[in-house]
């Protein structure tokens, strides 16, 4: 029964996170002191040289309130918003390229973000954890110290700095990679796949490097603690080769907290991915947000944000659901 209880509690937490996230997204902007519609009207009036008459302004205000979903009391708006997001998955039309629906933009951008983020996350998690394992297991060697210093220096560097340094080094000083992303249109061919890899390399490298420090330091501490455990001493006395001890004993036990930490850190990594996409003009959700901000397209902006919350929560849920496969204690509780 332990497993079923585990799954139910995880799915429950998933739904709560979605709900709280969507609720915060709804209420926070409404608590802000500025009203985007009044701002927009003021801007239009300035452009028209204050020549608009009050009736036109009032008409404009009503039609814009309708367009933004701002009619009725705040409770009505909230219920309507929740209904649209969770039941019909409808974010309305894009305001900048009316009447193309927002969801169309999102589903074009989403595969790029997921592909970039997924690849980078897997690569940095695997390599980072292996480096951390070696550094923790042979903690007395000089190599281990060097690897740890590498982790300590890399860990606190923020995403945008890594992205800028890589752009500076490999797109300006030694221009072997493109400055911003340009991907061939048309059907999937070898040429197109090549161009995708070529254009995605630097953004992916940014995310991999940013994840490295955290993975190395976390795994180093865990494997260092685990290698002092009784069962490791027993295996050593039994004559188990040290490589087997490292992978089958220490790694197997150290990896579990690292998986939990991965699920918790996905939100932060996703934040970094959005910023990286913006800096590299990579055609994912991050760039879409940037476009939406630039054109004042609030429907598109809200759509991308809800989609971000949904993808992050879903990724964390998937990790949580894979966890029992690796931890027998949950399966046989």
């Amino acid at each position: 029964m332990g497993l079923i209880q585990y799954i139910v509690s995880r799915v429950g937490a998933y739904l709560i996170v979605l709900f709280v996230g969507v609720t915060i997204t709804f209420f926070l902007p409404r608590l802000m002191p500025s009203d985007p519609i009044e701002g927009y009207i003021a801007q239009m009036q300035n452009q028209a040289g204050q020549s608009m008459n009050p009736e036109t302004i009032e008409e404009l205000r009503t039609s814009m309130r309708k367009l933004y979903g701002l009619e009725g009391s705040i409770v009505d708006q909230y219920v309507d918003y929740i209904k649209r997001v969770f039941i019909s998955f409808d974010f309305g039309p894009s305001l900048a390229s009316y009447p193309k629906p927002v969801s169309e933009f999102i589903f074009t951008a989403l595969p790029w973000t997921l592909g970039l983020l997924g690849t980078a996350l897997v690569v940095s998690w695997l390599i980072g954890n292996i480096i951390g394992l070696v550094a923790g297991f042979y903690h007395n060697s000089r190599w281990a110290t060097l690897l740890e210093i590498f982790g300590v220096i890399l860990y606190p560097i923020p995403y945008y700095i890594l992205a800028l340094v890589l752009i500076l080094l490999f797109a300006y000083i030694w221009p072997i990679f493109p400055l911003s992303t340009t991907i061939l249109p048309g059907p999937i061919t070898w040429e197109k796949i090549n161009s995708i890899i070529y254009n995605s390399f630097l953004p992916a490298l940014t995310l991999v490097l940013a994840g490295f420090g955290w993975n190395i330091l976390g795994m180093k501490a865990l494997s260092f603690a685990n290698k002092e455990e009784g069962y490791v001493t027993f295996a050593r006395l039994k004559g188990t080769p040290s490589r087997t001890i490292m992978f089958s004993y220490v790694f197997r036990n150290s990896i579990l907290p690292q998986i939990t930490a991965l699920a918790l850190s996905i939100g932060g990594v996703f934040n970094g991915a959005l910023l990286t996409e913006i800096l590299f003009s990579y055609p994912g959700l991050g760039l879409l947000m940037r476009t939406a901000i630039g054109s004042g397209d609030f429907n598109l902006l809200y759509g991308t944000i809800i989609m971000s919350i949904v993808s992050v929560a879903t990724a964390a849920l998937i990790i949580d659901l894979v966890y029992p496969l690796l931890d027998p204690r949950i399966r046989f509780r």
């Binding site: 996230g21 926070l28 918790l264 939100g267 901000i293 944000i305 992050v312 964390a316």
Partner: peptide
């Protein structure tokens, strides 16, 4: 913790 804060900060 689980909600990506950056998108919401972008809106604000």
């Amino acid at each position: 913790i689980a909600i990506p804060s950056f998108p919401i900060l972008i809106v604000l």
